[in-house]
Amino acid sequence: MTMRWKERLAAIGCFGLFLFAFINSRSFPEVPKILPTAVTVIGMALAVGLFVRTFIMKYEDDGKKMDADHKAGAIKVGLAIVMLVAYILLLSVVGFFVTSFIFMMVFAYVIDNEKRKLWLYPVVSAGLLLVVWGIFGLFLKVPLPKGILF
């Protein structure tokens, strides 16, 4: 996606966010409404400004097409988001250690650009998890999310 379109979508997203907040803030009493009103109105105006600018301004990457590397990168980011969302949602259901172990193994395998020996993934993941548990759980006594398993 070119920067022009990224900015255009960002402007629409920002406008939507500020508009939603503006509508929501209408129900606030007088005093708590002052700052939200100011922030959302200015925010909407700037978002409109950014949107209009995308039609006027020249961009460096205009006309350029996404190459294969960029496409592969975008797919990896998408996969990373899916893995992170799944990991965080399952964290409090299954438990920290099991989900973290599986997440680390799968994430490292998918994101790594070089494919390594398969046994390395579970071994390194277990090792890293042990270090995290040692530092946070044992040494600093920071509680870790618990679930059905551990």
């Binding site: 990373a80 997440f103 680390m104 193994m105 994430f107 490292a108 395998y109 998918v110 994101i111 790594d112 650009n113 070089e114 390594r116 390194v124 993941s125 890293l128 995290v132």
Partner: peptide
């Protein structure tokens, strides 16, 4: 390696 680093 990047994969392990980012997972960690």
């Amino acid at each position: 390696p990047k994969g392990f680093l980012l997972a960690g």
